Simulated assay, not measured.
Amino acid sequence: MLIRVEGTDLPGRRCAGPAGSADYENIHVAVQRRERPAELLDPVAADAATAVWTLECTATVTPGAVDLKGRYVQGRPGERFIYLNWVAADPVGGGFTMFRRAKLWLNAVPDDVLTAAVQSGVLVGRLGLTDAKGHPTCASVRPPQITWSAATA
């Protein structure tokens, strides 16, 4: 099974830092690998028109539940999620410094949508990546902030 995360309305390559500190520059967003914050899947510059990530996962169907597992799926059964990490890219050293992240809760996917996605093979999450203050979307992300649907591969 696949999970496709589609982000729109990216905030741009610069973001104000906490009061009294420097701005974040050369911002990118990427999916974090499970238990490895430094391993990021396909970083996208935050001034791109869209950002799309496709994650492989397995779906285990049991009576009353579907459990998704995979390299980029975090958390325990019943509490699974995907991290989108906001990072400042170092133009000289090539590394990334994480300054914010969003937690896309998979337990917030409606049951009928998840069942349809298991059957079709693709779960799609669509969200805007800029918050009301013009900053990168962060914290817990659940509907209506994200829209989940089933699609075909």
Rank of each mutant, 00 (worst) to 15 (best):
L2N: 15
V5T: 03
T8G: 01
G12E: 04
G12S: 04
C15L: 11
G17A: 05
A19G: 13
S21Q: 15
S21V: 04
Y24N: 08
Y24K: 03
E25G: 09
N26R: 09
P37S: 02
P37F: 02
P37Y: 06
P37L: 00
A38F: 14
E39M: 12
L40F: 02
D47S: 02
A51R: 00
V52T: 10
W53A: 04
T54V: 12
T58N: 13
V61S: 12
A65K: 12
D67C: 15
L68G: 04
V73D: 04
G75Y: 04
G75K: 03
P77E: 14
G78R: 10
R80A: 07
F81L: 14
F81Y: 13
I82K: 07
I82S: 07
Y83Q: 07
L84Q: 01
W86A: 00
A89H: 14
D90F: 00
P91L: 11
G93A: 11
G93Q: 02
G94K: 03
F96H: 08
T97P: 09
M98G: 13
M98A: 14
F99V: 02
R100G: 09
R100N: 13
N107A: 12
V109D: 06
P110I: 03
D111V: 10
D111A: 14
V113W: 01
L114K: 08
T115S: 13
A117T: 03
S120E: 11
G121D: 07
G121F: 02
L123V: 01
L123G: 01
G125P: 05
R126I: 00
G128N: 08
L129M: 12
T130K: 07
A132H: 13
A132K: 15
K133Y: 15
P136A: 02
P136Q: 07
T137N: 02
C138F: 10
C138R: 13
C138Q: 12
C138K: 11
S140M: 12
S140Q: 13
R142K: 13
W148Y: 11
A150H: 04
A150W: 01
A150R: 02
A150M: 05
A153S: 13
